[in-house]
Amino acid sequence: MESYYLFSNGELARKDNVIRLTRKDGQFKDLKVELTRDIFLFGEVSLNTKCLVFLSQKRIPLHLFNYYGNYSGSFYPREKNVSGELLVNQVTANVDCQHRLNLAKKFVLGASQNIVRNLKYYLRRGKDVSEQLTVIESLIKAIPLSTSIDQLMGIEGDIHRNYYSAWPNIFNDDTGFVSRVRRPPDNMVNTLISFLNMMMYSSCLSEIYVSQLNPTISYLHSPSERRFSLCLDLSEIFKPLIVDRLIFSLVNKRVVTPDSFEKGSNGCYMKKNTILKVSRAYDEYLRKTIMHRQLHRKVSYRHLVRLECYKLIKDLMDEKEYQPFKIWW
């Protein structure tokens, strides 16, 4: 199964049993729906209901990004792989304060352990991150003692603030990055974080769609209208492995430089060719494989996300307590 990243302007339409992107110059690209996992649209593309109905029939999510690479939304096909029992259990776990808090702690713990793994990796390579590492390891001890979601979110915020404060020491060059700035991002690193976080969010949504989980019912982040909040929960665990490590690689290997970005009145944005370059690197990163210690076979980073969905389902069905993914290599 392939994820398609479409950057050309034109028209997306059904053509027989394929989805065809026809560019304005008349050239076209056909997407074989049987081999399509999801589609990421970055260009100015028009499409009709016939195309959307076909995507829905083939269970292909469509993720939309605007000209600047900002996530705009997703077309989420009608769910066919559903379980009424799981849905009831998923809601019950959310309204059960203790069960929700336990799951939320696991999400924060998994993310924090993976953050520590990243810092130890760079500490062994001579990067001065020992101070932040000590503080974060101390904050992690407070996670099991949390008595509310708000308190837990506060600990998570402190961990991320210390983690981001270590980033200038990880980068080989001065990037101008000091702290996390979101809306709008003020430099190249914050722009990369925002873009890749949304890519990770979209990938989590695609994997949740394959499972029987409902993406709107979450545990760490509060469920609300107009967002798939379970994607936010799951993406926290995988950002240190996929998003952060990719950013360190892109910057330190000078795959992206300050010249890859442009600044305007509304912040810092990637140039069009930079979005293409970073998206390709992200897709290649998801294809990376690792020998799984329990399955005893190689699995891709993307498949690790799907396995996390299945582990959460087992917890909700009272089969096995959920344990968050932890980087072991």
Score class of each variant (00 low, 15 high):
V45Y: 02
L230G: 03
K120Y: 03
N81G: 04
I140K: 11
K239C: 14
S3E: 11
R37V: 04
L133N: 04
R117S: 11
N89L: 00
M1D: 11
S130T: 08
Y163P: 01
T257L: 13
Y163M: 03
Y67A: 13
K298D: 14
L316Q: 03
E137Y: 01
R100I: 10
S165E: 10
E131N: 08
H221S: 06
S279V: 07
I327L: 12
N102Y: 08
L103R: 00
G157A: 15
S146C: 15
Y269S: 13
R37E: 15
V210D: 07
K263R: 13
N114I: 07
L205C: 12
M188L: 15
E34F: 04
P223C: 07
R227C: 00
R245N: 15
T36P: 06
E137S: 08
L241G: 03
T191V: 11
F28D: 15
I247T: 05
I149E: 10
S279G: 11
M188H: 09
T289S: 12
A111V: 08
G126L: 15
I242Q: 12
I170N: 05
S46A: 14
I242R: 11
N214A: 04
I275C: 09
E207R: 13
N162Q: 08
L295Y: 10
L133P: 04
L119N: 02
H99R: 15
L119T: 01
S300C: 08
L21K: 05
N172H: 02
I237K: 11
L31Q: 02
R59N: 14
S179C: 03
I327M: 14
E11T: 11
I237F: 03
V278E: 11
S46I: 13
M199Y: 11
E319Q: 14
K141F: 06
W329R: 05
S8V: 02
V45H: 05
R180Y: 00
S83A: 04
I313R: 05
K32I: 04
R293N: 09
S265H: 09
F40A: 01
N187C: 13
A93W: 01
E236T: 13
V108G: 06
P184A: 09
L87C: 00
L213K: 00
